[in-house]
């Protein structure tokens, strides 16, 4: 079972306490955008076999959305961070790079 630390309440939460929300850091496009931009926002997903950044909600805890870095090929969790981040914290990126030298970066 996946265990993620909620960055708000500090609880190590089991997967059953969380709701998954798929890919993080999507840029929202709305009226006025091109078809390509809107399609990419709605449907194009990185879906990497490896390092992935995604959204989770502490549904049965504080109720807040947060972000997590996880390896989809091993299920290893690298860390979690606040939903208000536009990119993963540098320290987390360094940690991932040290563990996965082949990783192409965020």
């Amino acid at each position: 079972m996946l265990t993620l630390e909620c960055p708000y309440c500090g609880v190590m939460a089991d997967e059953t306490e969380l709701s998954p929300g798929y890919e993080a850091h999507l840029k929202r496009f709305g009226p006025g955008s091109t078809d390509e931009q809107f399609e990419a926002y709605m449907f194009a997903r990185k879906n990497p076999k490896g390092v992935h950044f995604e959204r989770w909600r502490h549904a049965y805890g504080c109720g807040k959305w947060f972000l997590a870095a996880r390896d989809t090929a091993t299920l290893e969790v690298f860390g979690t961070y606040a939903a208000q981040s536009s990119a993963p914290p540098q320290a987390l990126q360094d940690k991932i790079k040290a563990k996965r030298p082949d990783w192409k970066g965020f």
Binding site: L2, P20, Y22, E23, R70, L75
Partner: peptide, 11 residues
């Protein structure tokens, strides 16, 4: 499962 996974093993 509701998350990306390539491990052929679910929750």
């Amino acid at each position: 499962d509701g998350f990306n996974n390539f491990t052929q093993r679910g929750s």
